[in-house]
Amino acid sequence: MPTTRYYTPRRRRRRHRKALFFALLLLICAAIIACVIIFWPRPVREPKNTESSVESMEIFTEESSTEVSEISEEPSLPESELDSTVEDVSELSEESGIPAMAYQYDAPVPESEPVGEDYFKDALFIGDSRTQGFILYAGLADTTFYADKGLSVDKVFTKQIVSEGESTLTVSDALAQHQGEFKKVYLMFGVNELGWNYPEIFRDDYRKVVDQVKQTQPDAQVYVQSILPVSKEKSDSSDIYNMDRVNLFNDLLKEMAADAEVYYVDVAAGVSDENRYLPADASTDGVHLNKPYCQKWLEYLETHTVPVE
């Protein structure tokens, strides 16, 4: 058979085609890998000094937060780990079950590892007579509190209750005078406002208090505590101090806390019975908690904190 440069024996043609095929396959694979590396979405962390970035990290466990920070902080990530970032993020989500997303402010603070009483040394409690009772019976001797009988969200800015040497200040002024001193601020209002005709005004006034706290205590975690329940006897006998009103106001508080991006901690759950009433043995008047129930309240707070980064 004559051979020309255009003529290739069959075996050689087959080999040639095979080579072409594999070369093409390799090229396609390389193109796919390149596309995946370039276009696969990666979680991006916001700068550390913003509230949302601090709060978005707070739901992670210590272990997973370390891994996520290694993955998502691209500028500091070693080159050798770059190839594994995509797989690591998806594996992390699967392993820990924790989504790489911002803190869910519209949900109550979940249960956490218990903290000790020292945790509250740099805390401030602001509230009404229930908070007064709580501070005395919880035994938090080193904790600051701005609380008074009958204090309501509007009186935070007008009623002088905080003794400062020779003067007495409003809560608002005291917060300004002690700018930046507190790392946690716990708020509880509501029982004195249950009789207000317009609950939305309570929500809006409460928001003003939250804003004042955030402005004067920029490094503080702000916890809005749910309004504690009243007893069934009290609830059944009062047009104002009843669980319908308490629940309505608490729904507004949840909404406000989510909107203001502060933590809503459902302390009511820590002292309620199975029907969400304050148990009969918790109080003489169905409203103010006795010592054992103030200590249950404290226990709930100790087991429902949001970790700080």
């Binding site: 501070i135 005395l136 001797a141 103010h288 006795n290």
Partner: peptide, 16 residues
């Protein structure tokens, strides 16, 4: 008493 009284921890007395 109308409201049962509880003894405060000694380190809480200074608050009152």
């Amino acid at each position: 008493y109308q409201d049962p009284l509880e003894k405060l921890d000694s380190d809480m007395v200074g608050m009152l």
